[in-house]
Design a protein around this nucleic acid. Structure first.
Lengths: 216, 216
DNA sequence: CAGATCAGTGAACATGTGTTTAGGATAGTA
DNA sequence: TACTATCCTAAACACATGTTCACTGATCTG
């Protein structure tokens, strides 16, 4: 965990890390070069000198974060996976949170790297589900791909819940306690749903079939 | 549905509607007054003249959208509710979509009105769940409030799914077909979860209890 | 040492954007 | 007609911000 000590990093790395932090917290648009430069302890001109432009700086950050996250997924996957993302997240380092937040921001803003982020996550999740269905730990689904997208969506937005949602739960800021609070209902939902019977599901299924018939 | 005809609206209303559209589509920060003015067919100066400042314009838009959405909820609720939000959404008007999107943007950006938006939604949803639990249509939950927050979160982010998520499903843009595609797995999830048994849930429960014991 | 290369900076530049200002058109009124 | 009020605009202003430029100092290299 040496990345917090900025003294022994090159200026480029300091700038990149500062940029990642700012982009993650405030978004790309709202972050200005002088703020990044100030955090990195350098001048705004140096940022441009090293990275050419703000856009290019973002793409470097994208690559960096993506590489680290993928690497982490590769090594950590197996026992954890998506099944218990919130616990894995809660146990993760500050730096990891930052990277996850960066990724979510990238997806929200539809940055160039967002597609890669999402596709990696969805692919991995879908594979996990396929395996789970094969070994009987997960119920078969009518549309595994869509289920994967849905759970990725839920995981991401849960992990970096918008402040108003957090406040609706009675907390000031996002933190481990919020995740714990939201994690149990989530697992309950994943385990046995929330409807007592399948009335809704059947109604929707027949309605959709009728719609499909109308389309022809 | 006369609001599309802008000819017979006052300049103030035209500006407000244009602002709502721009804020919803591009966010508050990225929208500039001249774009709003152009859409409304007026000058940028008139926007300031009528609303004082960009910030005040937003707060007027917040109030307007909130009032309409709450009114709609009050009248439409009952048969629809949150249970089948995607179908209700798919059946809704263009204007309704715009307002929902506006609300999601407000929540994402944590605008002043976001708290009101979210609290209204969560309150209404929680009440719906309480009623459902009472009449047996919904399973009892260990934390109804948190469940309400979670489902509001899921509904909102599903309705205005980020473009990369949409693309991961093979579609170019968000639309009724995407909602239909994601809606079925969602209902399945709500009906019987996705885990085949309660291994995960039990593991998490004991882990959390152990953690709570550690905290003392 | 001379020269070259590299990291780095402060000031200036260009542009975008929220806001102000001075004034123009139009309609109502005495 | 003259006065007033209302609605509206073009141009200017002020400021933030991405980027460029001229320059400094340090570190190699011959």
């Amino acid at each position: 965990m040496c990345s917090a000590l900025s003294a022994d990093l090159t200026a480029q790395a300091k700038i990149r890390n500062a940029a990642i932090a700012h982009f993650a917290r405030d978004g790309f648009q709202k972050t200005n070069l002088r703020a990044i430069a100030s955090t990195a302890g350098v001048s705004a001109a140096l940022v441009i000198r090293h990275f050419g432009s703000k856009d290019n700086l973002r793409s470097v950050c994208d690559d960096h974060v993506l590489r680290i996250l993928v690497q982490r997924t590769r090594t950590v996957t197996g026992p954890v996976g998506v099944r218990d993302l919130s616990r894995a997240y809660a146990a993760g380092s500050e730096e990891y949170h930052l990277h996850v937040q960066y990724m979510v921001r990238a997806i929200e803003e539809d940055s160039p790297a967002a597609t890669t982020f999402v596709n990696t996550l969805v692919e991995e999740t879908e594979q996990l589900f396929q395996d789970g269905i094969a070994d009987g730990s997960i119920r078969p689904s009518s549309d595994v791909r869509a289920l994967a997208v849905l759970t990725v969506l839920i995981s991401l937005t849960t992990l970096t819940m918008a402040p108003p949602l957090t406040r609706a739960l009675g907390y000031e800021r996002m933190g481990p306690d919020v995740l714990r609070r939201i994690g149990l209902p989530m697992l309950e939902l994943y385990t046995h749903g929330m409807y007592a019977d399948d009335t809704m599901l059947k109604a929707a299924q027949t309605a959709w079939e009728a719609e499909r018939a109308d389309d022809r």
